[in-house]
Amino acid sequence: MSKPLLSALVAFSLVALPVAARAGDDAKKADKAEKSQCTISVKKGDLVAKGKTLIVEGQDAVRDALALDGDVVVRASATVNKVTAVRGKVTVEAGARVSGDVSALGGDVHIKKGATVAGKVSAIGGRVRADEGATIAGEKTELNINVNGEELVTKFLGGLDMGKDTQCEVRVTEE
């Protein structure tokens, strides 16, 4: 199994296991007043967005970019280490550079002509599209599981409760 696929499956498992455990907890199901919670751990210099499009501009000093329930757009002249969208798509525009990996879980990745990705590009529950003239140094990986015409990863992710009432705590670490 390739490293990007293994990494994506590990990330998917990290999301799936807590949800499966929570789903089996009848006490929490009965208490509808309790709000959903999530924790996002990021490093200093990371950008995180939930429920909206995260745009990385050329002048931004960004380490990693992560969007939950939203898209990530890396604009011309921007340089980012890693880019990830969960239930969203990633677009790396012409003149932008990603020095690490690009991944979408439940969405597509589009690398435009003139954009550079030094690492791998993965779409789990989506597609990878690279324009002619786009540079991708690593592997391109897509994983789609269709059952009766439905994409399974996208359907599973759509069942996760990360709606507007979800309380997300962002924890910033030094390294």
Rank of each mutant, 00 (worst) to 15 (best):
M1E: 15
M1F: 10
P4N: 04
P4Y: 04
S7W: 04
S7Q: 15
L9W: 08
V10Y: 06
V10A: 10
F12E: 08
F12K: 13
L14D: 13
V15R: 04
L17H: 03
P18C: 02
A21Q: 06
G24F: 12
D25S: 13
D31V: 04
K32T: 11
A33V: 12
E34L: 06
T39C: 10
S41F: 08
K43W: 01
G45R: 07
L47Y: 10
V48N: 13
T53D: 13
I55E: 14
V56C: 13
G58R: 04
Q59S: 15
A61R: 05
A61H: 05
A61L: 08
A65P: 03
A65F: 04
L66M: 09
V72G: 04
V73D: 03
V74F: 11
R75E: 15
R75T: 08
A76H: 02
V83R: 08
V83Q: 05
A85R: 09
R87G: 05
K89P: 00
V90S: 01
V90T: 02
D101R: 01
V102H: 02
G106Q: 03
D108Y: 01
D108G: 12
K112T: 14
K113M: 07
K113E: 14
T116G: 04
A118H: 13
K120F: 10
A123G: 03
G125P: 11
G125K: 05
G126P: 03
T135H: 10
T135K: 10
T135V: 14
I136L: 00
G138W: 09
T141V: 14
T141Y: 03
T141D: 03
N144P: 00
N144R: 14
N146R: 06
V147L: 13
E150N: 12
E151A: 01
V153E: 00
T154Y: 13
F156G: 02
F156A: 08
L160E: 09
D161Y: 08
G163Y: 01
G163K: 10
D165N: 13
D165Y: 06
D165L: 03
Q167E: 15
Q167D: 15
V172T: 13
